[in-house]
Simulated scan of single mutants.
Amino acid sequence: MGHNNGPRLEPFGIRAAWLRFANSRELRRLAKLEARINRKRAAMAVMIEERRTIMNRCIRRMRRKDGKQ
């Protein structure tokens, strides 16, 4: 992939020497794990953003109560 000035691809975003020694069964399992990890990261990002929204809303209420805004 990277031999003709194209972008060099790193399987699963991992740049590790050991990855070259994985067999096809292990690569399939790594692909499934990577998909699960990415879904969990996305879900976590949504939850963190929701927490930040609630926190900011509460901070605004707190400041209004104290007459600071």
Score class of each variant (00 low, 15 high):
residue 1 M to D: 12
residue 1 M to P: 12
residue 1 M to T: 08
residue 2 G to R: 03
residue 4 N to F: 10
residue 5 N to M: 08
residue 7 P to Y: 10
residue 7 P to T: 09
residue 8 R to Q: 08
residue 9 L to Y: 13
residue 10 E to L: 13
residue 10 E to W: 12
residue 11 P to A: 14
residue 12 F to E: 02
residue 13 G to K: 00
residue 14 I to N: 01
residue 15 R to C: 09
residue 15 R to Y: 06
residue 16 A to Y: 02
residue 17 A to L: 10
residue 17 A to V: 06
residue 17 A to E: 13
residue 19 L to C: 01
residue 19 L to H: 00
residue 19 L to V: 05
residue 19 L to S: 01
residue 20 R to N: 13
residue 20 R to H: 09
residue 21 F to G: 11
residue 21 F to Q: 15
residue 22 A to F: 06
residue 22 A to W: 05
residue 23 N to F: 01
residue 23 N to S: 00
residue 24 S to M: 12
residue 25 R to M: 07
residue 25 R to C: 04
residue 26 E to M: 03
residue 26 E to C: 02
residue 26 E to H: 03
residue 27 L to H: 02
residue 28 R to W: 05
residue 29 R to E: 11
residue 29 R to M: 08
residue 30 L to H: 02
residue 30 L to C: 07
residue 30 L to G: 05
residue 30 L to Y: 05
residue 31 A to K: 12
residue 31 A to Y: 04
residue 32 K to T: 08
residue 34 E to H: 15
residue 35 A to M: 07
residue 35 A to N: 11
residue 35 A to P: 05
residue 35 A to Q: 04
residue 35 A to R: 14
residue 36 R to G: 05
residue 36 R to A: 13
residue 37 I to Q: 02
residue 37 I to H: 03
residue 38 N to V: 07
residue 39 R to Y: 08
residue 39 R to P: 06
residue 41 R to E: 13
residue 41 R to A: 05
residue 42 A to R: 02
residue 42 A to H: 06
residue 42 A to L: 02
residue 43 A to D: 13
residue 43 A to P: 04
residue 43 A to L: 11
residue 43 A to M: 13
residue 44 M to G: 12
residue 44 M to N: 15
residue 44 M to I: 11
residue 44 M to W: 14
residue 44 M to D: 10
residue 45 A to K: 05
residue 47 M to V: 09
residue 48 I to T: 06
residue 48 I to A: 07
residue 48 I to N: 06
residue 48 I to Q: 06
residue 49 E to Y: 11
residue 50 E to K: 10
residue 50 E to T: 08
residue 50 E to Y: 08
residue 51 R to T: 12
residue 51 R to L: 11
residue 53 T to G: 09
residue 53 T to N: 15
residue 53 T to I: 15
residue 54 I to P: 08
residue 54 I to Q: 15
residue 55 M to Q: 14
residue 55 M to N: 12
residue 55 M to I: 13
residue 55 M to R: 11
residue 56 N to G: 09
residue 56 N to D: 07
residue 56 N to I: 01
residue 57 R to I: 01
residue 58 C to G: 10
residue 59 I to E: 01
residue 59 I to T: 01
residue 60 R to Q: 10
residue 61 R to T: 09
residue 61 R to F: 07
residue 61 R to W: 04
residue 61 R to P: 02
residue 62 M to H: 09
residue 63 R to E: 05
residue 63 R to A: 03
residue 63 R to G: 02
residue 64 R to P: 01
residue 64 R to C: 00
residue 65 K to E: 09
residue 66 D to P: 03
residue 66 D to G: 11
residue 67 G to D: 00
residue 67 G to T: 00
residue 68 K to Q: 08
residue 69 Q to H: 14
residue 69 Q to M: 13
